[in-house]
Structure formats: C-alpha cells, structure tokens
Simulated scan of single mutants.
Amino acid sequence: MKKETQFYDRLSSDLTQLLESGINYDVSIEVGEEDANIYKVHSIILQSRSPYFKKKFDEITFNDDHVKVLKLPNIPVKVFDVIIKQ
C-alpha cells in the first residue's frame, strides 16, 4: 500500500511540475482581465479530467504556433488557480 501511495504522490508532483514548466503545452488559457495570467497547459490532461475543457478545446482551432488559445476574462486568477490545480 505504501508503494501505491508513493506512486500517486509522485504522479501528482510530476503533473504539477508539468503545469508549472509549460513544457510541450498545446493550449494557452488567458485568465482574468487587468491582471491576466496565462497558463500553458496540456489539453489531453484537462480533457480527460473535465467535460467542460473537453468541450471548450473541441470548439477552438490551433493558431499558427499549433496552440489553442482559450480566453476566460470573467474568472479571477485566484479562482482559476484553485480550479486548475484540483
């Protein structure tokens, strides 16, 4: 049981590092208006965890840089921080 717990702890840590680094991201989420924050995320992870993001990403086409851009100006950055890290 301890090895299983260690595996999930490590996986959670790895996914957090992936979010924070933005390496090989394919979606940019712009959150907030004046103090906007840009999150460089991986659609496959968010789509597998959220029907909302799956629907949103399906509606957006890739830009010239092969990145989908989702703008969420009505969501405060602090709120989105909690959402994205859940």
Rank of each mutant, 00 (worst) to 15 (best):
K2D: 15
E33V: 07
K55H: 14
E20A: 07
N74C: 01
V31Y: 04
I23W: 05
F53D: 05
D26I: 00
Q47R: 10
K40N: 10
F80K: 03
I60L: 09
F62G: 00
E34T: 11
I83Y: 13
K56R: 11
S12Y: 10
D14T: 12
N74L: 01
I45F: 13
H42D: 04
K2A: 11
K71I: 04
P51N: 02
V82S: 11
I45H: 14
I83A: 06
Q86N: 13
R10A: 15
D64F: 07
N37E: 09
S13G: 14
H42G: 05
K68S: 00
F53Q: 02
D65G: 00
V67S: 03
E34W: 05
I84S: 12
D64R: 07
K3V: 14
N74T: 01
S12T: 10
K56V: 10
K71C: 02
S28K: 06
L46T: 10
F57W: 04
E59D: 04
Y39C: 00
N37S: 11
S13T: 07
S48F: 00
A36Q: 04
E20D: 11
K85F: 06
D35P: 10
S43L: 01
I60W: 05
I29S: 14
Y25L: 00
I38A: 07
T61N: 06
I84H: 09
Q47P: 05
S50H: 11
N37R: 07
N63F: 04
R10T: 15
R49P: 12
V79Q: 11
Q86D: 04
G32H: 12
Y52W: 09
V77P: 11
T61M: 02
Q6D: 11
E20H: 06
L72A: 03
K85P: 09
E33K: 05
L15V: 11
N74V: 01
G22D: 07
Y25C: 06
T61R: 03
E30V: 13
K56W: 05
K68T: 00
S50P: 15
